[in-house]
């Protein structure tokens, strides 16, 4: 196992973030912009999960849930970090409600202007 595996997953994650940023910056379609926001949201939650992952020296890593088969010192040694998972769990649901808000805004804009095109919406004031 080389050194590169110690941070290469983070680099892929940042590339996913960059794709979302590109969609927000370049695309003119409102739905494409919403998709970009969702991509950025997915990349961020993936990054936090990657940061919290742990591979113990011996044995396999385990989910942070105490079971009858796995408890005590063995559990403390093998479990992954629960804090980023707890933060991401709420953030996923918040992302869904924010996406719902954005979709509702796009639908209202489409009702008023008849298009998803942002440049056209800017021209048709009123």
């Amino acid at each position: 196992m080389g050194m590169i595996h110690e941070f290469f997953p983070y680099v892929l994650c940042v590339l996913l973030f960059a794709v979302g940023l590109y969609a927000i910056a370049v695309k003119k379609n409102l739905i494409k912009i919403i998709i970009g926001v969702m991509l950025i949201h997915n990349a961020t939650s993936l990054f936090l999960v990657l940061v919290g992952y742990r591979m113990p020296e011996t044995g396999e890593s385990a989910a942070p849930i105490i079971t009858r088969a796995l408890s005590g010192e063995e559990f403390f040694r093998q479990s992954v970090d629960p804090v980023p998972q707890a933060l991401v769990l709420t953030a996923i649901v918040i992302g869904l409600s924010v996406v719902a808000l954005m979709v509702v805004m796009a639908v209202r804009l489409h009702e008023k202007y008849g298009t998803f095109d942002l440049t056209r919406i800017r021209k048709l004031r009123g």
């Binding site: 409600s97 719902a100 979709v103 509702v104 639908v107």
Partner: peptide, 20 residues
């Protein structure tokens, strides 16, 4: 709270389509 809230948001969108 989460179930009723997300259901309400979707319901608004569906009812909006209905009126349209």
């Amino acid at each position: 709270k989460v179930g009723a809230g997300l259901f309400g948001a979707f319901l608004m969108l569906a009812a909006f389509r209905a009126s349209e």
